[in-house]
Design a protein around this nucleic acid. Structure first.
Ligand SMILES: [Mn+2]
Ligand SMILES: [Mn+2]
Ligand SMILES: [Zn+2]
Ligand SMILES: [Zn+2]
Lengths: 138, 138
DNA sequence: TTTCTAACTTGTAATGATTACAAACTAATA
DNA sequence: TATTAGTTTGTAATCATTACAAGTTAGAAA
């Protein structure tokens, strides 16, 4: 499923979020770098191109976009929050060695449990950890 | 599945972790308070009984126990790490309103994906968010 | 039981990610 | 073009967690 910047802008307008220069750049960065970057990586990645950008703005933007369901927050590790422009149904695998986060297809809605009758579920996350093939073979 | 303190002590010995007074108290607290407490809640909960306990020790202990797979770390929210003495196969649901974390039964190993062929998976987590029945009906 | 020592605990200071805040700036509307 | 609510920015504050070094202890060995 390909993510198109124009569609995202449409969504921003729907959510009454102004299309500021900084926000567009953060969004663009997320579309071009679908490696689940941290706020700090986004800030550093944009710094040359947008030297006036402040880290606070990166955080503010990410929080707005999350609020509007345009980005998904990934909390696999306790010491780093990562962000994903891909909000479709998928799971995340973090390699403990190279630290990379891989996407994997999974139909989270097919997970069945009857312990959650009466619960309103708005958010579902599946996080795996281990060692990726690259690191296993090294 | 009931968790028995004696079994845990056996595990500690196997892992060459000394049975210090502080560690036993932290373990006991986790067995008695299976509400997925934070390090701070553990520290405060034990403070009357063990006034000399330091917060550093609580963190050190939790890290040791995690290393030995005696406790499970829960990172649903980016700003709070919670700890679970129950390491059996189950999922977690966090109510956004009352902040409580509920356990739910789920066979995580039955989740199928062929995107992870060649990956060594050591850790699987399923986190849901939403509103619990208590808060829905209030 | 006594001795010994690596492992553990403790308090304090450091770290680092995220947020609060207030002044300056700007997107979007009329 | 003027207006203004929303946005950005830099700095300071917050808060969870870790680093460190000095004192203490669990557990093994004598
Ligand atoms: Mn992803
Ligand atoms: Mn649990
Ligand atoms: Zn790897
Ligand atoms: Zn609730």
């Amino acid at each position: 499923m390909k993510i198109i910047l124009e569609d995202l802008l449409e969504e921003l307008k729907k959510n009454n979020i102004r299309l500021s220069h900084q926000r567009l750049k953060v969004l663009e960065f997320l579309v071009l770098n679908q490696c689940h970057p941290t706020a700090d990586q986004i800030y550093n990645g944009l710094h040359k191109e947008v030297p006036t950008l402040s880290k606070t703005t990166v955080y503010n933007t990410l929080n707005s976009l999350t609020e509007a369901n345009l980005v998904r927050v990934i909390n696999i590790e306790d010491n780093e929050t990562r962000y994903d422009i891909n909000t479709f149904n998928h799971g995340h695998f973090k390699c403990q060695q190279c630290k990379e986060i891989y996407d994997f297809g999974i139909d989270i809605d097919s997970i069945y449990t009857d312990d959650l009758n009466g619960f309103k579920t708005t958010d579902k996350n599946v996080y795996f950890k281990g060692v990726c093939p690259k690191c296993s073979n090294a």
